[in-house]
Design a protein around this nucleic acid. Sequence first.
DNA 1: AGTTGTACTGACAAAGTCGTCAGTATCGCC
DNA 2: GGCGATACTGACGACTTTGTCAGTACAACT
Lengths: 113, 113
Amino acid sequence: MPVSRKEISPCPIDAMLSVIDGRWKGTILWRLSEGPMRTSELRRSIPGITERMLIRHLHELVRDGILVRHQEASMPPCVRYSISRYGLTLVPVLEVICGWGRNHLRRIGHLQR
Amino acid sequence: MPVSRKEISPCPIDAMLSVIDGRWKGTILWRLSEGPMRTSELRRSIPGITERMLIRHLHELVRDGILVRHQEASMPPCVRYSISRYGLTLVPVLEVICGWGRNHLRRIGHLQR
DNA sequence: AGTTGTACTGACAAAGTCGTCAGTATCGCC
DNA sequence: GGCGATACTGACGACTTTGTCAGTACAACT
């Protein structure tokens, strides 16, 4: 598994992780799972994120086929992002990850007391 | 989800990812899923990994409760690592990740032709 | 006596990711 | 005409992660 997750690795685990790896990708997917959103809406709904990072991550997710970018060619531009049909196949995986993570957080909590 | 995955984040997805995040952790877990191994055995079985990184990742996985370190107090030292009972709960999660990743790699393959 | 192997650590450099700041074009508002 | 909003890009610094190299202690083998 020779990976710095940006080069394409033949390892399926890395292939999957490279898609959701990124400081804010989880949150972005989480927000978009409730429906399509505009760039600026997303930015306002995710406290702490910078426009730079939002757009970088959005474009990466579009490149990976997880999101779709709809642009209405108007000026002031209006761009909306939504989860693609392919992206929807990721949701159950995220739920499994989330389930284990929730349990892990509980475990860490217990151990700390 | 404010994360640089080393600080403890309250987001379960991040909590999970922080455990398996690391250049070689996937491979290490993969190797160990076939049975306990010595440090040097692991190093030889993972081409490209350095001893430094192997040991760092092993210790992190031990700290997170995923692996167990058995030491026979002999000289030349003999240390064996194995997946803990808790670590076993990770395996099905990795399988789901792996399944999606495998499919994703196929998809990328198709798109490139 | 010198080399190899074991498991590990520390100093440090290279690479990668993330954040900050400035700047783009165009429209509406006052 | 200046200001703000929209979606975005580029330069650059800060911080993290990864890799390189040397060194530790002890035993066995040649």
